[in-house]
Design a protein around this nucleic acid. Structure first.
Lengths: 141, 141
DNA sequence: GAACAATAATTGTCGACGTCAATAGTTGTT
DNA sequence: AACAACTATTGACGTCGACAATTATTGTTC
């Protein structure tokens, strides 16, 4: 019988958990959680996104986006704006406060990833990232 | 601002989720879930383990082990046996039924991993596995 | 050897997460 | 004008992972 840790899928599952925990503990003081942070980061690179687009890009259920955007609005990190061509949709935009938050936490965020891939050198990290990216792209997205 | 998917930590988190989902859907018909399967697989390679050891090896809270072993006992896949030298401990052993289950599902389990790392060829899969293993070992055993 | 700390399993609680079903408002189609 | 499709929202449910507290047992210390 193959050992459990010989299974790439199980390793991914375990490391995914650890990664999420590290991110959440880094975000703890700010009152946000990993999912909020993901939304913010995504908004930073796509100026104005419909909630439906956030849902598709992040893989979160549309109903989950609602609460996340609620929280971000309360903190002044994002805003809902009416869509000009479709009154069903809302356009979510990053506010200056949100942008500042991302700037201030960027370094700490990088520390998290560094801690995760600690034992790997620079080229190995790139290898790992490239492999993960290809795996991630295949399963939809 | 770096894109979200440029973050190795986030990729790991996402792929970990997907991996867990795939495993769970593969196990669905058997009534087990990923964590039960992990216990079974671990028991298959270590003949007789204390619950405390299962907890340490798998990274699950001791309180989580209780329910998992309960379920496995109900299905006849594992048994609790009294420890001869410490009446607090129980030794968990795989039954013949559990062994048969692992044998029967082994192929399907491999399909899950194959589906996950689909776009990678054989050498790339080994590369990925080796990198993940080193990352996994660093953050504690 | 009696009091005390440490340990193994257990129970209960809690928040976060992911999924699904249902609804209201709006748009597109026939 | 009637109907189907879509967007955001609300609500419910089960799983998962982390923690505190309890019970039974063992080890340690005075």
């Amino acid at each position: 019988m193959r050992a459990l840790h010989a299974d790439t899928g199980y390793l991914l599952y375990r490391l995914g958990l650890r990664s999420g925990q590290l991110f959440n503990s880094f975000l703890q003081e700010s009152g946000l959680r990993l999912r909020h942070y993901a939304v913010l980061r995504l908004l930073a690179t796509t100026p104005g996104a419909l909630q439906r687009e956030l849902s598709a890009s992040l893989g979160y259920d549309p109903s989950a986006i609602v609460g996340l955007v609620d929280d971000l609005e309360k903190l002044g990190f994002a805003e809902r704006r009416p869509s000009p061509d479709d009154r069903r949709s809302r356009i979510i935009v990053l506010t200056d406060g949100g942008r500042a938050f991302l700037r201030d936490t960027d370094e700490a965020g990088q520390r998290v990833t560094n801690e995760l891939v600690g034992p790997l050198d620079a080229t190995e990290r790139e290898q790992l990232h490239a492999l993960l990216q290809r795996v991630a792209e295949s399963g939809l997205a």
